[in-house]
């Protein structure tokens, strides 16, 4: 029966060896046993070295609560969406109904995603939320952040940061981003109480996700804003207070560890 702490120590040694392999095989062979001796003498069982990020999100709109924020830390090869291209089914579900479950599941299924997290609930206008994520310190040099949330008093509007560069941040360093709003291009912008899930549509059917795609084109573009009943759109349940301008969200990313 092996001592679990020994297993961990051996694991640690193995990682160091693997790390050294990138420098050169000859060095590995020479340095191997020395490393093991050092560990046995000095090291406690060592957890994987982590980097931690605090992502602070502020809703800058007047009257658009935001669905639970989805945050993904990933390599550049992972892409949540691109303007001019059709939204994935998972993004459509988030954009039309505010449900980020399928979106985050799909992200975590990718080998190019390091970690993801969801906000705790709806983020109301003017309010702020901190979301914390850890990744392996090895991934710091290739790290991008994507953040997506629905403006819930719309048919299918998203506020998003699309793969912003957060590579090589030092501990204590902060970066500030502002998010544009996009139309997912998956649902007609009727603005009706039956098709908007947010509180502005109370009393209507308030449908969220619906698989049919009936916007002007099946592609993501920068949102043109809502027209609203106050501005003469028949059937709209929205009022002028539900309008917004870019940017809709401020995001401060800080590496805290």
């Amino acid at each position: 029966m092996m001592n679990p702490s020994l297993l961990r120590q051996r694991g640690y040694s193995l990682r160091r060896i693997l790390g050294t392999l990138t420098i050169g095989a000859a060095v590995v062979l020479a340095g191997c046993s020395d490393d093991d001796d050092d560990n046995n003498d000095a090291q406690q069982p060592e957890p994987e070295v982590m980097a931690s990020y605090q992502v602070s999100i502020k809703n800058l709109t007047a009257g658009q609560p935001l669905s639970p924020i989805a945050v993904v830390l990933h390599e550049s090869s992972w892409k949540s969406f691109a303007t001019g291209e059709a939204a994935s089914s998972e993004l459509e579900q988030l954009a039309e109904g505010g449900d980020n479950t399928a979106y985050l599941d799909a992200a975590m299924a990718s080998a190019a995603v390091f970690n993801s997290a969801s906000g705790s609930g709806v983020l109301t206008p003017g309010s702020m939320e901190d979301i914390n994520l850890d990744v392996s310190a090895d991934s710091v040099g290739t790290l991008y952040l994507t953040l997506v949330s629905m403006l819930v008093n719309t048919n299918d509007a998203l506020a998003a940061l699309n793969a912003v560069d957060v590579k090589d941040m030092g501990v204590g360093e902060q970066l500030t981003f502002t998010a544009l709003t996009y139309d997912s291009g998956t649902e007609a912008n009727s603005e009706s109480a039956d098709t908007i899930p947010g509180p502005a549509a109370a009393g209507g059917a308030q449908e969220g996700y619906n698989a049919s795609r009936d916007d002007v084109r099946d592609a993501i573009y920068v949102h043109a804003g809502v027209v609203t009943a106050d501005d003469g759109l028949a059937g709209s349940v929205l009022l002028e207070t539900h309008r917004w301008d870019n940017p809709a969200i401020q995001v401060v990313v800080e590496r805290v560890q």
Binding site: T181, V216, V222, H223, A224, G225, V227, G232, L233, N246
Partner: peptide, 25 residues
């Protein structure tokens, strides 16, 4: 714009021809 395609104040459609910046990448 407005939502009256055969009259009203403008010939621009408020549901199609508005925008928010940015408009080009």
């Amino acid at each position: 714009g407005d939502t009256d395609s055969t009259g009203g104040m403008t010939d621009i459609d408020s549901t199609q021809h508005r925008w928010l910046n940015p408009i080009a990448k």
